[in-house]
Simulated assay, not measured.
Amino acid sequence: MIEFRFVVGDLARTSFAYSPLQEAVYSLRCWRDPARYPHQRPWLRRLAPAFRRQDTELLTALIAPSMWVPDFMTPRPERPRPVFAQQLTALGTTPPHVLAADFGAAYANHPMPPVVREGLTDPAALLDRVTGALAAYWHDCLAPDWWPRVHTILESDLAHRGKVLAEEGAGSLFASLDPRLDWNGEVLTLVKKLDRHPWPEADIQIGGRGLVIIPTMFALGAHTNIDPSLPPILCYPARGRATISETPPPATGEALTRLLGAPRARILHLLREPASTTELAHRLAVTPGAVSQHLSVLYDAGLLTRARSGRSVRYARSELGERLCGPS
């Protein structure tokens, strides 16, 4: 049993957030035990070639056989919607002695794999390898397509929880996160029965630190840190996580025009081959200034890349822009 003890004002300081870093780390659970996450299987098949090019020896070792994760890998978000790159930079400042303690706790009932056991002889080097492996995994596997979909689900979940809290109160909110949660107005109790790997009992004093509640795609029930002395968090299964396997219909030319407007849709189609502002202006018979404004919007939306070539800047479709346009 885990108990979160609230004092006056603690409930008012309770907040929701999601964590791209946590989702990246927790997603590694799928590669260790795909059967637990059937809704992720279409993504696993799609991402498998890219994942095989990663530092898989280390990445899979970040998840213990119990599915526990070292606490330093999933720090409490400092704001509701953190940025992965900033979280990863902060992760890289973890004190070396923390790695041994947290890996030891995660692997308490299992032998550590050699890559971790040997890596802990030089914790700083191991931490560098961990952050490098996560950066590559995020860039190659998650950021292009998977994270935008997950981001939408998590945002929808937060909107729903806010509505429940406003309309039905804290008791209904906590019950909606996990039926094993019970709120009596002062203590939030999580009773974990029949778990294959029971969580250690804990009596967590919120004590003015605030409780941060975090949805995740990779939880079968509510849970918290292994170390109860850390700033308190409560993770829970995100609402609608099964919809991750739904594949949206391909965009049509007409749909793209409705989305972007005719001028920007035409520019995106013209950029099947890289071109400069001047070249596009000539082909469209408009001023370079007008084209530049559209290019700026498309670039800021992540649909274009740009690179300097001599005195001009050449634009091309990004991977997202290619997918949005579909087959040329």
Results as ranks from 00 to 15, higher is better:
D33T: 13
E279C: 01
E57F: 00
L271Q: 03
R317N: 03
S229P: 08
T60P: 02
R76I: 12
L280D: 01
G310I: 01
R311Y: 11
V115I: 07
V297P: 01
A251F: 10
G207F: 09
L62D: 02
T93N: 12
H160D: 14
P232G: 01
L188V: 11
G185V: 05
E78N: 04
D203G: 14
V212T: 07
P123K: 01
G92L: 06
A90C: 12
L99Q: 12
A255N: 12
S328M: 07
A12I: 08
W183E: 04
D128N: 10
D195G: 05
E186S: 14
A50G: 09
A316I: 02
P80F: 01
L11Q: 04
V191E: 14
I213M: 13
R323T: 03
R13P: 00
P65H: 06
M67G: 10
L142T: 00
A125R: 10
S296G: 13
L173F: 10
Q86H: 15
L158H: 08
P228M: 02
I233A: 13
R258E: 11
H197I: 06
A242E: 15
P200I: 09
A275R: 01
T305L: 11
L298S: 05
R29L: 02
G119T: 13
A285H: 12
E322M: 14
A262R: 12
L58H: 11
R272K: 13
V212P: 04
L173H: 06
A301Q: 13
R317H: 02
A125N: 05
Q86Y: 15
A101Y: 07
